[in-house]
Design a protein around this nucleic acid. Structure first.
Lengths: 185, 185
DNA sequence: CAGATACAGAACAAAATGTTTTGTACAGAA
DNA sequence: TTCTGTACAAAACATTTTGTTCTGTATCTG
């Protein structure tokens, strides 16, 4: 990919996220984005079809990054502090959200956070069905159970963020297990 | 309230909901709304400040109606089929969503359904904290527990709707209790 | 009936959208 | 380094949307 394309794409992403922390998605105009990113109008439309398209690309980019190293946790993660694989994955994601990507929290905390939480849940649905061991069969559809688990996690993260990240990732993991694990007993 | 105001307000509401079933909220313009409702531009802005304001009013109107008779359930509902008060309330809301208000399902099923699920959750948070008996204290904050319960319910309803309402309200109530009740044991 | 008000219709300025054209600067390859 | 393609800026443009302001008409309320 051309370095010029990378630069403008990155500039537009930054400008967009920057604006999202100040006002809601629906109020942001393409004009503001290109002014903030300091690129021409033509350039924006060369990269993205619409504002919605930009949003989608930003979400994909950010969450791809958060979830990218999850598969590697099995081999590289230090399991001394986490009881099992599920704990390790959950805690890892929470740390990633809190520390590595201020961007993501800016987005999840903004007025239009719901848009991103929807994406977050989609990624989690894949994660849960692929990497979590759902040991005990219940009298409910598996699909519903997966949906409930990832939905509860999104819900919890939202609560965590809105409360100002007062708890540690480990504490949040405990909370999550407290509301989820009893289902399997 | 003036009959003329009622008529226009109702016409705008209907037009808005009608449009929502055809395209996403962000794509709907005030122009389309007033054309569909067959009212003047001036009239629209006399009733609502912005499109967002209209959305908010519609949500309030619809959910107020769904939740309005919940307090009366304790005295009037037939408890023969439902085990307890919580069951009765849950089942009642599900029936209300499914049968009494095609509008609400149109809205929750549309592209912008997330907008309304957010409102739905706010109403549920109030309901849970006011009408549900959270018997057993847990090692998690009460506020978080309430959030988890209403969040899980919204999640379940969303799954129910997206699946085409294949299950009965009673069955959904069982599912809900299956994922929620074990927390208290 | 009489005054108040909700409305339609039209006109308006301002802003935003998405496209087109022309010229410039920079990338990667020979 | 030189060449060629392409990403870009700038400007102009038609179109759409927004929100306001005016005037006259219809309708409610008392």
């Amino acid at each position: 990919m051309d370095r010029r394309q990378q630069k403008t794409r990155s500039a537009i992403f930054s400008a967009f996220i920057d604006l999202l922390s100040k006002k809601s998605y629906s109020k942001i105009t393409v004009q503001e984005i290109i002014d903030t990113a300091n690129v021409g109008r033509t350039t924006f439309y060369a990269h993205f079809e619409t504002k919605d398209d930009l949003l989608k690309e930003v979400c994909t980019s950010l969450f791809d990054h958060v979830f990218s190293d999850v598969p590697q946790i099995e081999s590289t993660h230090d399991f001394s502090a986490a009881r099992n694989k599920t704990d390790a994955i959950i805690t890892h994601i929470l740390y990633h959200l809190r520390d590595n990507h201020r961007n993501i929290l800016d987005i999840l905390t903004c007025d239009s956070g719901d848009l991103f939480l929807k994406f977050f849940k989609h990624y989690l649905n894949d994660l849960v069905s692929q990497h979590m061991v759902l040991k005990i069969p219940l009298e409910i559809p598996k699909e519903l159970l997966i949906n409930h688990i990832s939905g509860s996690f999104v819900n919890l993260v939202q609560w965590w963020i809105e409360g100002g990240l007062k708890q540690s990732p480990e504490q949040i993991t405990v909370y999550f297990k407290t509301v989820i694990m009893p289902i399997f007993d």
